[in-house]
Each structure stands twice: as structure tokens, then as C-alpha cells.
């Protein structure tokens, strides 16, 4: 733990008319972490993000930024890349960046200095006097990213960051985000495509149908949801391998190509990997061994299933 979380929501409710967008959502984002806000489309992720950005207000619930109740000036310490993003097409790049930077509270001199730095870093100084409509989509995306992080936000919120970006820019952004985190920024990734961010995240929260169904450190969640399933690659005789397995493991899948075998198995009971090794090493030569860790979408599906059986039961 690093002390007070940079952001905390306590029991947040938000309704749009009869439609409940968020129901009793509580979560805490640790300073300096990368936090994944995951869930399918329409789960309430963007509603929550808009509340953090004070674009909308919750119906009830408490919000804290850096340990204090969230206040209007805090928007200057937050950087937000919305899912629906764009720039004034008919405005010049430099002028537009200056405008957006100053709206985030930077002085004219500060904004100019910082912009120079970023434009040099991305080698795009020549774009300053161009209009956005004259730039390619990829170029405009770079500018969009710069204006999101220019004011050096302590909390950076990226909503569906890798959709709409081409692979080159997506990698660039990934690298820059990691760089910003190294410098102390906290990052919230929000996405319905869990596989795109899960390896980046330290902690996650799963949201489904306006409710938070799971949150915690990624390591802990994986531990909690591990299935004790492993993939082994070895050379040797598959039949003697199967015989060597004792009742403590269940063979799920097998594939044989000559004496090259690949199997998937699940350990049963309280058996450990070491027990397994002791049993099989005499009959085969191990090439690789890997635990099959559940992906976040697996976790999500399992959690949703559990929830619905609980609801029905």
C-alpha cells in the first residue's frame, strides 16, 4: 500500500431517468498504479469516468481525490482521453493545443514551453500551423494524446484507448503511458476489450450491468480464480506418461506428434506442482511447463455466471 488512494468512490449511484447507470459502486485507485476498469459495453464504465471528470454528478455517494472530497479545480490534475474523441478540424494544431492546454489551467508561457517539448519529442514541429483537417488520422491521434497529457496530470484516464488508434500509435501510447507512470502518474484504463490492457494493469475492477462485481490486485484475483491447470510439453511415450499420472491429476487434452507430446492437465485435491514433477519426470523429458492463468474475460464470464446462479438460487 502507498498510503491514501489518489481516487476513491464510495457507494456511488447514478440514474438516467428510470435507467440505472451505476448502483452502489465503490472502488479505490492506488497512487502510481495502473488501474483497469473492465466490463462489457453499457456496463457503466463511461458513466463512472464522467463522474470522476465531473462532467456529470452522481445522484448519491462520495468521491475523493487525493484523500479530499473531489472539487471542481481537480479537473486540472486529471487528464482524460474520452472514447468519443476528436479535435476542431478547422483549427490550427498549435493554436488548438494552446487553447486546450490553457483550459486545463496552464499559463500561456507554460503551455507553449511544454508543447514545444512534446512536438520535438514526436518530431512534429512542422505541424504547428497546419489545420487538423490537413493531417492524417494517425497524426491527429498523436496531437490528441499530447493535449491529454500536456498538463502532466496526476491521474490519467483513458477510455477505450486502443480503439481507433492504429497499431503504431497504440504502441507509442502504451510506451508513453508507462513512461508517465514511471514519473509518478496514476492511470485508469477503461475498456470492454479486456485482453488489450490486462497485462498492463496492477489492479482491476470488473463492472457489469451498473454494478461492480469484482475488484482487487490483478495477482490476487488470478490467485483466487486459478484453476490449477497446466500445459506440459515433453518428449517420451504418452501412454507411460498417462500411467505415471496418479489419481491426483486429470488429463484434459493431449496431442501427439511422434514422441513430441503436448498435454493439458488439472491438479486435483491438494496436490502441488512438485508432486506432479516427482511422478512424471522418470518417464519423460520435459521441454516446457506453464500454468494456464485465467484471462480477465474468463474471470469475468465466471463471475457473471456465479452471480446469475446466486441470483436465481
Amino acid at each position: 500500500m502507498h498510503g491514501t488512494p489518489i481516487f476513491e468512490a464510495r457507494s456511488v449511484f447514478k440514474n438516467y431517468g428510470a435507467y440505472a447507470a451505476l448502483q452502489d459502486v465503490s472502488l479505490a485507485v492506488e497512487r502510481g498504479s495502473i488501474f483497469g476498469l473492465l466490463g462489457p459495453n453499457g456496463a457503466g464504465k463511461t458513466s463512472l469516468i464522467r463522474i470522476i471528470n465531473q462532467i456529470t454528478a452522481p445522484d448519491s455517494g462520495a468521491l475523493f481525490f487525493d484523500g479530499k472530497p473531489l472539487k471542481p479545480e481537480d479537473v486540472n490534475r486529471i487528464g482524460y482521453l474520452p472514447e468519443e474523441r476528436g479535435l476542431y478540424r478547422k483549427m490550427q494544431v498549435g493554436e488548438q493545443c494552446m487553447y486546450l492546454a490553457r483550459l486545463k489551467g496552464l499559463s500561456e508561457a507554460e503551455a507553449k514551453k511544454k508543447l514545444r517539448g512534446w512536438f520535438e519529442k514526436f518530431e512534429i514541429q512542422a505541424w504547428w500551423n497546419k489545420k487538423i483537417e490537413e493531417l492524417s488520422k494517425g497524426m491527429a491521434q498523436k496531437v490528441q494524446f499530447i493535449v491529454t497529457v500536456l498538463h502532466e496530470p496526476e491521474l490519467l484516464i483513458l477510455d477505450e484507448p486502443f480503439t481507433g488508434f492504429d497499431p503504431v500509435n497504440a504502441n507509442l501510447i502504451r510506451d508513453e503511458v508507462l513512461e508517465l507512470r514511471r514519473k509518478g502518474a496514476t492511470v485508469i484504463f477503461s475498456t470492454h476489450r479486456m485482453e488489450t490492457v490486462e497485462e498492463l494493469c496492477d489492479s482491476i475492477a470488473l463492472i457489469n450491468k451498473s454494478k461492480k462485481i469484482l475488484d482487487g490486485k490483478l495477482i490476487d484475483i488470478r490467485k483466487q480464480y486459478r484453476t490449477h491447470t497446466y500445459r506440459l510439453e515433453f518428449t517420451g511415450n504418452l501412454i507411460s506418461f498417462t500411467n505415471a499420472l496418479w489419481a491426483g491429476a486429470e488429463l484434459l487434452e493431449k496431442k501427439q506428434d511422434g514422441d513430441h507430446c503436448t498435454v493439458t492437465l488439472r491438479l486435483l485435491g491438494g496436490n502441488t506442482v512438485n508432486n506432479l514433477f516427482q511422478a512424471i519426470l522418470p518417464v519423460c523429458e520435459l521441454i516446457s511447463f506453464q500454468e494456464l492463468i485465467p484471462s480477465m474475460s474468463d474471470v469475468f464470464i465466471r463471475t457473471v455466471q456465479q452471480e446469475s446462479t446466486q441470483d436465481h438460487g
Partner: peptide, 17 residues
């Protein structure tokens, strides 16, 4: 124009609508 250019949400993360 702000809506079709999709810049409106970028701006209202800095100022009130």
C-alpha cells in the same frame, strides 16, 4: 460542429458544459 468533431467531451473535462 463540436459534436461532430467529437471534441466536446474533451473540452467539458476541463470546463463545465
Amino acid at each position: 460542429e463540436e459534436k461532430t468533431n467529437r471534441i466536446v467531451e474533451v473540452i467539458i473535462s476541463s470546463v463545465k458544459p
